[in-house]
Design a protein around this nucleic acid. Sequence first.
DNA 1: CCTCCGATGTGCT
DNA 2: GCACATCGGAGGC
Length: 193
Amino acid sequence: MRLDADVLDAAHDLIGAVVTAHGVRARITEVEAYAGPADPASHAFTRTPRSAIMFGPPGRLYVYRIHGHCCANIVTGVDGVASAVLLRSARIIDGLDVARSRRGAVDEAALARGPGNLARALGITMSDLGTDVLGGDAIDVRAAGKRGDRMASGPRVGVRRAADRPWRFWVADDPTVSAYRRHPRAQVEPQPG
DNA sequence: CCTCCGATGTGCT
DNA sequence: GCACATCGGAGGC
């Protein structure tokens, strides 16, 4: 996985990768790229205590809370370059009963559909902030065999600024992928040229 | 399709 | 203090 390369390459590589966390294994089916200071939608557009981790080395987990939910990102880019890939959806491979106990009575395809639901199903909380997912810690992300799935891309979900950059990537026609929701006050970004 | 709203932390003033 | 957010479920049209 090219986590130290361009964040769009890293996002591509994370589709199909397998994440293991707290008794559940899942194959990633949907991600979004956030390009740091070059990206008004990124938490690292400005450097704050919360976003500082994204300015560090790749492979660490950036977890944040929003509206009472936790969301998990993989930090990308070499040390000093701030960017990250949000894990939005996944298909549970192993530990279905554990995931169900965390998520309640929902369809199997919906257990880890959407970033808040994914973190919940995998038991990821703020205590996992900073975990090195490449280093044999409690949470692990690794490339899996190529599956020949068709990849699709489009605008990111729920962002107000830079709302039209097609930096969301997902496995085409996969029922575990979340629906697109545009931010109600999405801003139009000036087009170059 | 759309709009509302609970939920709660972060960052700005 | 306060606006707003990488959300998600429910409900209306």
